[in-house]
């Protein structure tokens, strides 16, 4: 029958496409493609922020988008984080779908009232009458010797807030697939990138795809220890795992990708296999993402643990300027390797 002949072709097609049309693109292009594809699909989606239009993006993420979509949909703002975040939230309450770019999440502190008190709460306070389908995105955490005010990570701050979803990505493939999911999501999403990763190249299919929010990714399988991380600390985690492999220690490395809701299940399943957990996070230690994971693992997998859960965070300090301080402040592969050896008692 005609339709029977078609079925095998349709089943194999997606696989063929991925094999045939994956190419390497930069992180910033992956983000741009996500926004372009969704803006082509839905005229309610627009981009707003400082330098996103005529300057083509402070980090060139939105390069060419003004030319394609025009000034109505790619909108330069003055340096008024509180004001344009509020305009975005109000607009989202009234039937459109803004993407608000912050030049960095450090500057978004000026707008945090709108993210926490307005975007996260309008659906609840109005008992479902007014939602807020908005994406706040921009680079997070340190990016070299930028000093104390330009080097902070706030994933855990926003992940504490019911009403928000929080995504923090480590590579171009995830960045595109998750940003597309964030834009079509009906809830407010906080989306964290990194200045120092915008030039990173990675495999991304030509064809459209979405990555579900709330699902971690096992980036490296292993049996001896679980290492959990996210955003650019994934590089530190993977580098440490490669080094450890040379000594016959096989680490399982999990990229959280979404911070809220956190994929506890994937972590717990891995810890039940490896019996050891090390968390690598670029954030201050107090009340961090690693704190939350640690609570959950001790509660749900206590009997599976063969060593205390360990974490490597930043120093519990402001990040001072000199390269000496940056080196001392951030997690690095050597510290991860040391920690893994300790939980393995090797």
């Amino acid at each position: 029958m005609h339709t029977n002949q078609l079925i095998p072709i349709r089943l194999y097609l997606p696989l063929l496409i991925i094999i045939m049309t994956t190419r390497k693109i930069a992180f910033r292009q992956a983000l741009r493609e996500a926004m372009q594809e969704e803006m082509r699909r839905d005229s309610r989606v627009f981009l707003m922020g400082e330098e996103v239009a005529e300057y083509n993006g402070a980090y060139k993420v939105s390069q060419g988008m003004l030319d394609e979509f025009g000034a109505k949909r790619v909108i330069d703002t003055p340096i008024s984080e509180l004001g344009f975040a509020a305009v975005g939230v109000g607009a989202a309450m009234n039937g459109v779908r803004p993407i608000v770019e912050f030049m960095t999440w450090n500057f978004a502190l000026l707008a945090i009232d709108q993210i926490v008190n307005s975007a996260a709460k309008t659906l609840s306070m109005s008992a479902g009458q007014f939602g807020c389908p908005i994406v706040f995105r921009g680079p997070s955490a340190s990016a070299g010797q930028l000093g104390a005010q330009h080097s902070q990570a706030f994933e855990n701050w926003y992940a504490n807030v019911p009403g928000l979803k929080v995504i923090s990505v480590s590579n171009p493939y995830d960045a595109k697939g998750l940003l597309k999911s964030a834009i079509i999501d009906d809830d407010p999403v906080v989306f964290m990138e990194s200045e120092v990763m915008y030039g990173d190249m990675g495999d991304v299919p030509e064809e459209e795809y979405y990555i579900p929010i709330g699902k971690a990714d096992i980036r490296r399988e292993g049996t001896d220890v679980t290492i959990v991380s996210f955003n650019k600390m994934m590089k530190v985690a993977l580098a440490a795992a490669d080094e450890l492999a040379k000594d016959g220690i096989e680490a399982e490395v999990i990229d959280l990708r979404t911070i809220r809701p956190l994929d506890h299940e994937t972590i717990i399943r891995s810890v039940m296999k490896t019996n050891r957990l090390v968390i690598v996070e670029e954030a201050w230690p107090f009340g961090s993402v690693s704190t939350e994971i640690t609570y959950r693992v001790q509660k749900d997998a206590f009997d599976y643990l063969d060593a205390p859960i360990r974490r490597i965070t930043t120093a519990d300090t402001s990040l001072s300027y000199s390269s000496v301080f940056v080196e001392a402040f951030l997690p690095n592969p050597a510290r991860v390797i040391q920690c893994v050896r300790e939980v393995l008692y090797k």
């Binding site: 509180l82 004001g83 975040a85 509020a86 305009v87 975005g88 939230v89 109000g90 607009a91 989202a92 309450m93 009234n94 039937g95 459109v96 009232d113 709108q114 008190n117 307005s118 309008t122 306070m125 109005s126 008992a127 009458q129 007014f130």
Partner: peptide
């Protein structure tokens, strides 16, 4: 809040709704 009557709410943080009002107008 009363969506049927285009009433976008009573807001509790003093002044926060000034920006929201501009955003609602932006959407219109």
């Amino acid at each position: 809040f009363d969506k049927d009557n285009y009433f976008f709410g009573g807001h509790g943080i003093v002044g926060a709704q000034i920006g929201l009002g501009a955003g609602i107008a932006f959407a219109e």
